[in-house]
Amino acid sequence: MLDINRISKTFNKGTVNEKKALNGLELHLKEGDFVTVIGGNGAGKSTMLNAIAGTWYVDEGSIVIDGIDVTRLPEHKRAAYLGRVFQDPMTGTAASMQIEENLALAARRGKRRNLRVGITAKERDSYKEQLKILELGLENRLTTGVGLLSGGQRQALTLLMATLQKPKLLLLDEHTAALDPKTAAKVLEATDRIVGRDALTTIMITHNMKDAIAHGNRLVMMHEGQIIYDVSGEEKKRLTVADLLHKFEEVSGGEFANDRMILA
């Protein structure tokens, strides 16, 4: 479903701030794979997702989604294949528009937008139905402005928007990191429900090692713009946080396991 072939990206080339963020990264996903991604700060996790989404173009390598080479496609065209949820709850929704308007925008991802009415009565009913899966009561607040929602509600809504039209690939960039633990758990539950229901191919970045182990069928660890550890199936199920911490120390000489990871 996804083939990342030896991609590289260097930011601020030729300056003192030069940073090689991706370094010949290689990753291949089968249809229905749910991969969790862990790694220290600056390991290139978010950079990898941005490369897939087309926030900028990669320097080298190619990205193929379901047989379609998207390496040279601009961000808004790749969006046809991708569902995205961001770390910052403010990023994924249009605050000045209503819940149903945001959903209607997402329902038209990858389609031509012309002078047809922006949201039909039939859509409204279906959104009401679909919002129920989030279990947040948003189904009764279709015309509420998104700016009035809490961070957790906005993340859950963004998740629904990302999957309203079944994407070929769902990209979750630490989408629960900015939420309090209780809300984060709720959004993660909703994530599991939706990903499970539609058998979505998913990449989920997380700083929480327990979450990384508990969710998905595969786990990869990144370091310095490359994947250094890749487990799946039974082996992944047997993993413990201690195993991962040990692995971290092995590759980084200890500096890796910062407080945030241990506490999480």
Binding site: E75, A79, T91, A94, L105, L115, R116, V117, G118
Partner: peptide, 21 residues
């Protein structure tokens, strides 16, 4: 309309708009 809504979305949140195609 769909087109009008996409213009409003662009003004409200350009990143989200691109992510929605």
């Amino acid at each position: 309309t769909e087109l009008g809504c996409s213009i409003r979305a662009t003004g409200s949140n350009p990143n989200m708009s691109r992510a929605q195609g």
